[in-house]
Design a protein around this nucleic acid. Structure first.
Length: 216
DNA sequence: ACATTAATTGTGT
DNA sequence: ACACAATTAATGT
């Protein structure tokens, strides 16, 4: 499917100047991908920079345990800051990008991305804006990674409670537990659920049982 | 036993 | 953090 200039005007008319739209129509590559489509994985080279038209894309990074940590979502008329940095240095990708739903996007060849930064003020502005947005998202992601030590605090708290009452099951809600850990109920629920998967703990309504494997 | 409500817990963004 | 869905306990009829 080739790009229609009228269509581009509808989407980007407010954002980009006319000449840029024309070039976009020439070199941009329109794509539609289904949910679950892997747009990029670690180690892959970046050949083009995407701009989303609709849908959303999850950007993840494998953490130390090999689990995939969510960095941020791409949506709206977003582009990907990682692509932008990587393509300038021709570096390999350090992230995984997966379509989170059916997504339409325009892929732009890397040469043009660089060229346009000098040529079109509106493009430069767009690039800066996507950096700014992603930076904010990343600050949020850092918070979540910092919580990695929280599961240990939770286990410690449960252990202390166990010693106090001399039994392995407590009557307590996640809400109350969250307050003791100075965190939200949701975070506590998720942490407890992980501990349950690891077989450290058994959950039921208003009740938490500390299993032998978790006692220190 | 069944319906209704409230509280707790789970999940996606 | 928030919104919403789902589940479970409690209560009234």
């Amino acid at each position: 499917m080739k790009l229609d200039i009228t269509f581009l005007h509808q989407q980007f008319g407010k954002l980009f100047e006319g000449h840029l739209l024309e070039e976009l129509a020439q070199v941009g590559n329109y794509m539609e991908v289904e949910e679950g489509f892997v747009l990029m994985r670690p180690g892959g080279y970046i050949r083009s920079v995407p701009i989303l038209l609709s849908g959303s894309v999850k950007i993840m990074r494998a953490d130390a345990d090999g689990r995939e940590a969510l960095l941020y979502y791409l949506g709206g008329l977003d582009s990907c800051a990682m692509s932008l940095t990587c393509c300038i240095d021709r570096k390999q990708s350090e992230i995984t990008a997966i379509a989170d739903e059916k997504t339409r996007l325009i892929a732009i060849p890397v040469e043009k991305v660089e060229e346009w930064v000098c040529k079109y003020p509106s493009w430069k502005h767009f690039v800066f804006m996507t950096y700014q947005k992603r930076f904010e998202d990343l600050l949020g992601a850092i918070d979540q990674i910092a919580f990695h030590k929280l599961d240990e605090r939770l286990l410690g708290l449960l252990n202390r409670k166990m010693k106090q009452c001399g039994c392995t099951t407590f009557t307590i809600t996640h809400e109350e537990l969250g307050q003791e850990l100075a965190t939200s109920r949701e975070v506590t629920s998720r942490l407890l659920k992980q501990l349950e998967r690891l077989g450290k703990v058994k959950l039921s309504r208003n009740k938490i049982e500390l299993l032998a494997t978790a006692i220190s």
